[in-house]
Design a protein around this nucleic acid. Structure first.
Length: 864
RNA sequence: GCCUGCUUGGUGGAAUUGGUAGACACAACAGACUUAAAAUCUGUCGAUUUAUAAUCAUGCCGGUUCGAUUCCGGCAGCAGGUACCA
């Protein structure tokens, strides 16, 4: 039996001794082509779970395949070690965030090491380390000097009892998770990154990223949300006598993508945060109360959009910009976002779902301005049809009318053509301890000023108190007090820390030169960047990947690097799911505490009680449906786990954990080992024999079937790996194994057999590296230890197939098949197909109206 | 709500991107070997029927095509994201 424990320990030892996974600096191998394989760095939550294992197994197969193919491969690993959970642990268990984080890193690394992942651990980074966040502050200052960071008021979730800022995750049903008090929105000053300065490039470059999944490109495009339209003024009716007399403006400016529907406008609505709302609230208690009510909603887009649409009639009228005689009611509405457009809208209920609901609720007029097809009911939202009830737009098509309306508004000087984006600037301030301190100082004389680079880094203080609520930095008096870098007077440090997306926006650059005294060495980054294959969860499709793209562009404009797009190929993996088990009390049980009965039902091992199996959810601690990789590695070995997790399911689909199939992977490994033992019983090969075999010129006619078969499979496995269809590569390898098992090697020339077995071993080596190397050593008895198997040279002339099976259809239905030489003529195929007995049955006495012949594939007779 | 995906046997999935639906596995069943078990090997394995074959079948409804799991339109369910979880 294959002794995985001994074998895996041995090879990991060899890799470590040989520094196999360390990559040379580029100057030593300038000729060699590089590949940078990167998996998204994990948050050190405490345990490696199967989602991690899947991510790293994918990365490792790619990295090993590339290395085997002769590339210089950078494959690093590190830790995204700032973030909220460390503070939660500090609050809950009284442990310091650093201690908790570093303990977790150690534990997780200990789980990763036995998996045999080909990381260059000498390049390991942790973003909470002083080397990392100290340098990050330099980047922050550079961005600030370049005008890409500014101060801005923004809303936060505010717990009025604890007097603290809450993350969206900490708001449960609109209430603070600890105090239980209803959360309100509160405006506080923030540090903000001007990502919108790069909107155009972030959008435009999406077209030059063919290695990204289409869905991610679409998600990013929609997130940026470019829309063209009109910014148009709705002038107050009779401003002098109304309550807006003292308001500095004489109109409300609205952005619309549907300017052609202006004649159908039946109301205007402004955001509760709109300056006019605030102005009105000053002298109107009811309005102030309504605005406060709106601000009770959590600030997430989803909460706002599913909340009941509410409007407050201000009693103010505005004039329709195209027809000043038409007066329109002005509302304050909870669904209007201040961050988008001008924070004000006009509603055309006949042609917009939401406006229709609003108008119906508040009994506002509904005027059709686009001729609605008879089968449609209002609201009719398609931008197709002729304009009606719209004066100068009447009779025009919708899209044409849109242009005319914009031109007219510009001509009348009541509006301007405008491109608006959904993308907002990136708020990076966090009122928390466990993050990178913002290197700014508040001076009573000089205002808010940046530190000088020589004043950096600003370390986090170690002595912090988590027994009080709020940001510990804010309460740390000695840390807070400093001197102004400009005037030298007493001043206070900024106590906000940075969003952890800031760290993950440049870590891939740091890996290129993890020990440089600057954030990174330009020459090294020049060699390694961009990342060739980036692998991570689909949940990062928008935010992380957009921020990282922005960083590359900004850093390149600041001459740090020459790369504007950091990731060439992006693989988004699916989740790892597992059945969850719930007993009658609603408690979640661990999978190992549950037994499956022959009838397919599940019982609790301890109590014998029947438990409910809830299909397939993301593995999560709260549902106890996690499987511990260490236990699996102990019982089956790393190769089995790697093989199992790469088998069956394509990398981008959700993976359903299934312990029985893991047995299957383990059996396959043993089957391969048995095959090796059988061959060894017939005598081993040698590297000399192997060299002869691969050098010998064997024409297709002389090649034994097994050599042809092996090269056919090598070609297909190579292709599958290049397409990242790992599960197919493994299925193909199983087929090849069967072919080898069925071959009598006593009748095969030794050098040819050697070549066959070398290909067979190497083809699976990226997935099961320990096994492949051990088997190579056993079969070939090399003089010196090989720690990587070089990918075999494919002989295309042996991998071509001479015959193909031709399917025959009658009226598109399969009726038979026959074998034909590759490249047979259409007439030949048609005649052969016609001759098939089962085909005759269906065409006899029928008139053939058409014959479709697809070369090397199919013949289809169409009969009446 | 909005954006983006996904849905194929008992189960995971395959189908060279419009051309034989179910490769390769898991589970199950039967057999061989064994005193027995484990391991291993062999076979069967979508449904229906009048069964050497035919019909139906890729979430549901409709369309394009000689031909649709694949393309188009609509619907349902599930999942990810929704800007302070990472």
């Amino acid at each position: 039996m294959y002794n995985f424990k001994e074998v895996e320990t041995k090879w990991r030892g060899i890799w470590e001794t040989n520094n196999t996974n360390e990559v040379s600096c580029p100057t030593k191998a300038p000729e060699q082509k590089k590949v940078y394989v990167l998996e998204m760095l994990p948050y050190p939550s405490g345990k490696i779970h199967m989602g991690h294992v899947r991510n790293y197994a994918i990365g490792d197969v790619v990295a090993r395949f590339k290395k085997s193919s002769g590339y210089n491969v950078l494959h690093p690993m590190g830790w995204d070690s700032f973030g909220m959970p460390a503070e939660n642990a500090a609050i809950k268990h009284g442990v310091h965030p650093r201690e908790w984080t570093e303990g977790n890193i150690l534990a997780m690394k200990n789980t990763l090491l036995p998996l045999g992942l080909s990381y260059d651990w000498k390049r390991e980074i942790a973003t909470h380390s002083k080397e990392y966040y100290g340098l990050e502050q330099q980047i922050f200052l550079d961005l600030y000097q370049r005008g890409l960071i500014y101060r801005k008021d923004a809303f936060v979730n505010w717990d009025p009892v604890d007097n603290t800022v809450l993350a969206n995750e900490q708001v449960i049903d609109g209430c603070g998770w600890r105090s239980g008090a209803p959360v309100i929105k509160k405006k506080i000053p923030h540090w903000c990154v001007r990502i919108t300065a790069y909107t155009d490039e972030l959008l435009r470059n999406l077209e030059s990223l063919p290695g990204w999944p289409e869905k991610v490109l679409l998600m990013q495009e929609n997130w940026i949300g470019k829309s063209e339209g009109l910014e148009v003024k709705f002038v107050f009716h009779d401003k002098t006598v109304s309550r807006v007399a003292a308001f500095p403006d004489d109109s409300v400016t609205v952005f619309t993508t549907r300017p052609e529907t202006l004649f159908g406008a039946s109301f205007c609505a402004i955001a509760p945060e709109h300056p006019l709302s605030s102005f009105l609230a000053e002298s109107d208690q009811e309005i102030a109360a309504f605005i406060r009510k709106c601000q009770e909603l959590p600030s997430t887009e989803s909460a706002i959009s599913i909340a009941e649409k509410k409007g407050y009639d201000t009693g103010i009228f505005v004039r329709n910009p195209f027809d000043s005689k038409k007066l329109i009611k002005l509302y304050i509405a909870n669904f209007v976002l201040m961050e988008y457009g001008k924070g004000a809208i006009f509603g055309c209920p006949a042609h917009d779902e939401r406006d229709f609901d609003f108008a119906t609720k508040y009994e506002l007029p509904i005027t059709t301005v686009i001729q609605c097809p008879p089968e449609e009911t209002l609201p009719y939202v398609e931008p197709i049809g002729k304009m009606v009830h719209s004066e100068f737009l009447d009779g025009l098509d919708v899209l044409e009318a849109r242009k005319v309306a914009i031109d007219k508004a510009e001509q009348l000087k009541i509006g301007v053509r405008k491109v608006t984006y959904r993308l907002r600037d990136w708020t990076v301030s966090r009122q928390r301890y466990w993050g990178c301190p913002v290197p700014m100082v508040h001076c009573p004389q000089c205002g808010t000023v940046p530190l000088r680079k020589e004043d950096l880094p600003v370390w986090l203080p170690e002595d912090v108190d988590f027994t009080q609520v709020g940001n510990p930095l804010d309460k740390h008096e000695t840390w807070k007090q400093t001197v102004c870098p400009v005037c030298g007077a007493a001043a206070q440090r900024e106590t906000d820390t940075l969003d952890t997306f800031f760290e993950s926006s440049w870590y891939f650059l740091r890996y290129c030169s993890p020990h440089a005294s600057e954030p990174f060495d330009k020459a090294e980054a020049q060699y390694w960047m961009p990342v060739d294959i980036y692998i991570g969860g689909i949940e990062h499709a928008v935010l992380h990947l957009l921020y990282a793209r922005f960083f590359s562009m900004a850093l390149s404009d600041m001459q740090y690097i020459d790369v504007r797009e950091p990731f060439i190929t992006l693989l988004t993996q699916g989740m790892v799911c597992h059945t969850s088990f719930q007993n009658s009390q609603g408690e979640w049980l661990y999978p190992e505490d549950v037994d499956k009965l022959p009838d397919g039902t599940y019982v609790c091992i301890e109590t014998g009680e029947q438990v409910k199996a809830v299909r397939a959810e993301k593995m999560s601690k709260s549902k106890n449906n996690v499987v511990d990789p260490t236990a699996i590695v102990d019982a089956y070995g790393a190769d089995s786990l790697r093989l199992f997790i790469m088998s069956d399911t394509p990398y981008d689909k959700d993976f359903y954990w299934n312990t029985e199939a893991l047995d299957g992977a383990w059996r396959y490994l043993n089957k391969m080992w048995r095959l090796c033992e059988n061959i060894m019983a017939q005598g081993v090969f040698s590297e000399e024999i192997l060299a002869q075999g691969t050098a010998a010129i064997i024409s297709k006619n002389d090649a034994p079937d097994i050599l042809e078969t092996t090269h056919v499979y090598l070609a297909r496995i190579e292709q599958s790996l290049n397409q990242f269809s790992f599960h197919k590569a493994i299925a193909l390898h199983r087929e090849l194994t069967r072919a080898l098992e069925n071959c009598n090697f006593t009748e095969v020339r030794k050098d040819i057999a050697a070549e066959v077995f070398y290909i067979w071993l190497t083809a699976i080596s990226p997935v099961t590296p320990h096994f492949a190397l051990e088997a190579y050593e056993a079969l070939f008895k090399p003089r010196s230890v090989h720690d990587t198997l070089l990918w075999p040279q494919l002989r295309p002339e042996l991998a071509t197939e001479d015959f193909v099976e031709i399917a025959v259809q009658v009226c598109g239905k399969f009726r038979g098949a026959f074998t034909a030489p590759v490249g047979a003529s259409d007439t030949e195929l048609q005649d052969n197909a016609m001759a098939l007995e089962n085909v005759q049955k269906f065409i006899v006495n029928k008139k053939i109206t058409k014959v479709v012949v697809v070369s090397d594939k199919l013949v289809n007779f169409v009969v009446e």
